[in-house]
Write a protein that binds this DNA or RNA. Structure first.
Lengths: 158, 158
DNA sequence: GATTATTATTTAACATGTTAAGTGTCAAAG
DNA sequence: CTTTGACACTTAACATGTTAAATAATAATC
């Protein structure tokens, strides 16, 4: 009796938020990985590019937060993307500590084309799962994230 | 007008499954990281240890799947945990390709103590969010993972 | 039983996660 | 204007993610 691909003994660790969130994310990302591989861009690089596209001239700190990458990772990613000619970095003249990032024309072209494929994949997922179901899940996830991130006021002893 | 910690412009990428799942997972894991750091065990090592605890004598392939780590990562993790005396590896006598993993007494002691702390943290999260809400979210995540993982039968022309 | 295919694991190479420490810039205080 | 502190990265070091290729052992085939 062979075990199928997702058959492992149902145990406590499999029914926890960290594992369930990780597995769900893997399931989603598996659909996008072929596209990313086609354009030779990693998952994290893609997130960074998408955020830069949405907010041209964003600074590194906000970019890191929005793309969910740590500052040291972002440093390397920006260096890599710049050497590939996809983005350009500059200094904020008002605060020369800050790095400002924008897409090059080449980066813009890449995002335009890959963005179409990405949108199609997301639409497929939406068809498979149902738009409302995804919206509900997104709402639940965002609420949970907020509730866990908001640190309780220490004055409300408890 | 300073921007608060989680204030970034609300844009499309922030309302997608990959980002939302990533952020939710980060919010949860932030609660466990201090404990993990205390015992000098990484997030992935902890998952591996927990699964081994649940299924003593598990083989590497099932262990990797249950702990959500890739085979090459597992190789390194097991080597590291073995060198610390927390686990022991052996060969399956019926199939000498397979590596079987079990906890040492030291590993068992570590998991017992840290497991208490972990359970307390999880209980805190449950109190903050509500047990039913977590259960519903886990159900939704598991359903979505299943629905995305199940490859449609090619005979049902699509 | 030798050949071939398949499976389980490992190794290698590069990218990122993670933490700590270092560097340059701005801002407040003296 | 200098000192101190805070902020925005950057670098370094180690662990893991990810893919491809290599090894070893089993299974299937002729």
């Amino acid at each position: 009796m062979p075990r199928s691909r997702d058959d492992f003994p149902l145990s406590a660790t499999q029914r926890t938020l960290p594992i369930a969130l990780l597995r769900a994310r893997e399931a989603v990302m598996d659909r996008f990985r072929p596209m990313l591989r086609n354009i030779d861009v990693t998952e994290q690089q893609w997130r960074v590019l998408r955020v830069v596209q949405e907010t041209e001239g964003i600074d590194a700190t906000q970019l890191a937060r929005a793309a969910c990458v740590l500052a040291p990772s972002l440093t390397r990613i920006l260096k890599s993307l710049e050497s590939r000619g996809l983005i350009a970095q500059g200094r904020d003249e008002n605060d020369r500590r800050r790095t400002l990032v924008r897409l090059t024309e080449e980066g813009n072209a890449l995002l335009h084309e890959a963005g179409l494929v990405s949108a199609r994949i997301y639409a497929e997922i939406e068809t498979k799962l149902g738009a409302e179901r995804i919206a509900d899940l997104l709402d639940a996830l965002e609420r949970m994230t907020d509730d866990l991130t908001t640190q309780e006021d220490p004055r409300n002893g408890g």
